[in-house]
Amino acid sequence: MADAEIGLPGAGAGGSALDEILRPVTVLTGHFGSGKTEIAVNLAFGLRNRGTGVTLVDLDLVKPYFRSRLVREDLEARGIRLVAPEGDRFYADLPILLPEARALAREGAALGHRVLFDVGGDDLGARALGSVSGLFNSRTTDLLFVVNVNRPFAEDLEALRAKLMAVQAAARLEMTGLVANTHLMQETTEKTVLEGVRAARTLEAATGIPLRFCAIVGNLARAFGGPGGKADNLPILAMERHIVAPFAEKPSGARRRSGVV
């Protein structure tokens, strides 16, 4: 893992580090396939790099493959705790909500470290959150909505606003921030990123929910200044791709078990 290439922007001139602007409990929601898992895993590594204790809760009860639990060994090797079903149920697509997830929703902020919740996509995925919503303390919790306008049913403002409202209603929590994550995998260009930021700004203007940061992978993040950089004046989260297909290159030093998606 190349430490220098991932992580959170430090507090530079006119900007704040993401670990300063995000509350101790960060919940990632979004439309289906918006990139919540990749962002959650990268935030976990990034926060850990800055010396914070981190727990990641895999609350994705919707998609069957490519969940954050897939990189359990990589997370644990870096001292990041993963809360996800164990044993046979690790592989299941069953609606399992662990008691520990409830405890972390309630007391996560009191642990003195960071807790990240990776929630399933759409309002369907956010229902799991709705069942524990009463446990979160709004002063210590950020509820983020991830946006990729290259995804189906998320192409225009009206579709996005409808998704956001549906997720918020299912989660029974107030959204506190937007995350721009518009990309096309390996075909992403600077233009893709900037168009995505502009689209997210339109959603920000329409809903009053502030756009907090922009997630960018690999070399492209370096084009925007890497950790600490900006995309159209928005702080960036410089990411490495951790959730990859079996034929794609894994991050260097990855310890996850092979042969499983």
Partner: peptide, 10 residues
């Protein structure tokens, strides 16, 4: 196979 169904590509 399941991978073709579940993976995301442009």
């Amino acid at each position: 196979d399941g991978l073709i169904g579940q993976m995301m590509e442009p």
